[in-house]
């Protein structure tokens, strides 16, 4: 594959060291055995799987032509902080939806909105689209050419994510999560 050369040495190293290590740990956790035979089979599988999937693990950049990213070369520290924030948002979203469901009058005003957010990293797009589904009263209907079509349960939820001017908190956060990483390379 021609795109394979576009990966930097550092990204390739991360891909083919971190991923087998993670898979091997996962194997040990799932099997729960540490005898020699199990460890050897696990190690072989953990090394073979990333190699077999190497073409899938190399992701094309969405805007920059010819550039590609390693699928598992992510800013894990920042993602962990983001996940904690996302979990708290998820709890708030659920309480909000629960109050709407239990309210006899059902105060909903569903609407479809679109907003644009350019993210070069394909994983960043996925993270944003998934986060939208998990948080206050919004689901992603479609993502095409960096335009996100969202369905919101209430007008407030729609405006929080896609205000009339500027951008919502979540797209901004995801942008910060990945853009800085892109500049380092």
């Amino acid at each position: 594959m021609g795109t394979k050369n576009a990966l930097t040495k550092k990204a390739q190293f991360k891909q083919f060291v971190i991923l087998p290590a993670a898979l091997f740990i996962f194997w040990i956790v799932l099997s729960g055995k540490t005898d020699f035979k199990n460890l050897v089979i696990g190690l072989i599988a953990a090394c073979l799987i990333p190699w077999l999937c190497r073409s899938v693990l190399c992701l094309q950049a969405t805007t920059t032509p010819g550039k590609s990213y390693a699928a598992f070369d992510l800013p894990y520290g920042k993602i962990f902080v983001y996940l904690l924030w996302l979990f708290w948002e998820l709890v708030k979203a659920n309480i909000e939806v629960a109050l709407i469901v239990l309210n006899p009058k059902m105060p909903i005003n569903p609407q479809v909105r679109t907003f644009k957010k350019t993210l070069d990293h394909p994983v960043a797009q996925t993270v944003l689209a998934k986060s939208i589904i998990l948080t206050p009263g919004t689901i992603t209907i479609d993502v095409e050419d960096h335009v996100y079509t969202i369905h919101a349960l209430t007008e407030g939820a729609a405006l929080a994510l896609a205000p009339e001017e500027g951008e919502g908190e979540m797209p901004a956060r995801v942008g910060r999560l990945f853009n800085e990483e892109a500049e380092v390379k």
Binding site: V91, N94, I100, V101, L102, P110, I133, L134
Partner: peptide
Amino acid sequence: TVAALGVIRFPDFYTRLHAAGKGDTL
């Protein structure tokens, strides 16, 4: 429970997905 109730009470497919997608996950 609230998610299941929401699936019954909401008026259309998309709004029902709101209840199912979020309530179940959490």
